[in-house]
Design a protein around this nucleic acid. Structure first.
Lengths: 240, 240
DNA sequence: CGACACCTTGAAGAGGTTCAAGAAATGTGG
DNA sequence: CCACATTTCTTGAACCTCTTCAAGGTGTCG
């Protein structure tokens, strides 16, 4: 909960390729090491920021797993994303200097706190950092386009297949298995993200198991047939 | 189709408050006037950029109305947004220097072409421009969160009501009526954006008319009961 | 004026939701 | 360390919303 005093330089961080621009001069690297003010530990179930809170910083996830979600006045809620190590969280606060969603840790986590004012300041001096920040925000925009496609035009099994493939791919980029993953979220949270009810998520898992595409033991999923899942994503609803 | 040679300075543009940062020194304003390379006219039905095309510039819409949409290999398509005067389009290309969606004019339009390299360069010198660009991208991220909520957790009538209220609000900000609007898009395009079939959109319009919330004559919509529409957005599906 | 795109409406059907019950895992406190 | 409460997950059956298919109407543009 309390910020850590100990600071490990970005230049030594094993997630550097994910968070930071590459190909920097030594001088620029020194500048970037000032970017992270402190690190912060968040226990499972705890909140990193909430809707309405003052926005001050972006957070680079060092370890752990988060969900971000919106809650409307009438009690509806919508998971807007799941974030893992190396990803940047908090950009929802940039427009109005207020966070517009909640971020909760789904497992014990640690983040690097990067005050946004500092990001802006150093960005003006280090062109490659500026470009990097633009790209990170651009990536988020494109990711959300993909979610819109998923929510707007896919059926339940297509959505879940796309979700699993996306998760396992991101985990693979981080050195984990291509075919095995542990879900950090409940069926309900998956359903909220995919615009489905938890029962539908559960049934669709069962359907995939019957079809021999995956093995499921609660949160443990093993992908047996990646191409089969890929086909499930593209199976298309209309055909006339 | 051809870029215009004539250049009207941003500092004189009547859309300045929408596109540009405010409270600049004279010197900074001069810098910003270099931002817009050329202007470009796009006729109704024509394309501003397409998926796969090299990304070079962001575009500020001066006049007209656009839709952006994704097309998948299997022929599905998803409208990701409708953009009007004063809005910035093209941010989908920033991550990979390639556009990832198509932008088509739904009515004759004119845009200011802002080469992204120039945006980056001037941003490094003019802090308020940098901050402005971050905010524009941040706004797009938050807008898309809202669309995710809409697609993931609202029913047909809630979606359409939210859509109409959003459109009329944005038009009102631009000096148009609070209660009357002309749709620039077909029922099918609305449906694609809202994750509904065109028949559902049409039926929902008819339902709103029956309920006395709106009047509809094809593309002309008059809102009779704004609060009623607002209630329709929040009507909530589950209640146990 | 005719062709075409767009919109509306009806009826049948499908996919996903809702409600309900039970099983399996996890966490807690004694 | 075990028993119990709680949370999470699975599965079934009925229901409902939205889709699909179809036909006819309306407006627009060459």
């Amino acid at each position: 909960m309390n910020p850590q005093a100990i600071q490990i330089a970005c230049s030594n961080c094993n997630l550097r390729e994910l968070c930071m621009p590459i190909g920097l001069s030594e001088h620029d690297i020194d500048r970037l090491d000032n970017l992270v003010a402190v690190r912060k530990k968040i226990k499972r179930g705890e909140t990193l920021f909430t809707n309405g809170e003052l926005f001050t910083s972006l957070y680079a996830i060092r370890t752990g797993f988060f969900k971000t979600f919106l809650v409307t006045e009438d009690g509806r809620d919508q998971v807007t994303g799941f974030q893992m190590a190396g990803e940047i969280i908090g950009m929802d606060g940039i427009v109005n200097d207020l966070h517009t969603c909640d971020a909760v840790a789904l497992e014990d986590a640690e983040v690097c706190v990067m005050p946004f004012e500092k990001i802006e300041e150093i960005s003006r001096e280090v062109a490659s950092l500026q470009s990097h920040v633009f790209k990170i925000m651009g990536r988020e925009i494109v990711r959300e386009h993909g979610v819109m496609l998923l929510l707007g035009s896919m059926r339940a099994d297509e959505r879940l297949a796309a979700f699993l493939l996306n998760l396992v791919q991101r985990l693979h980029e981080r050195g984990f298995s291509q075919s095995e993953l542990v879900l950090r979220m409940t069926r309900e949270e998956i359903g909220s993200y995919l615009g489905l009810k938890l029962e539908t998520v559960s049934r669709t898992f069962s359907k995939f198991v019957e079809e021999g595409l995956i093995e499921v033991k609660l949160r443990h999923v093993r992908i047996l047939d990646t191409e089969g899942l890929q086909r499930a994503v593209n199976q298309q609803t209309t055909c006339h």
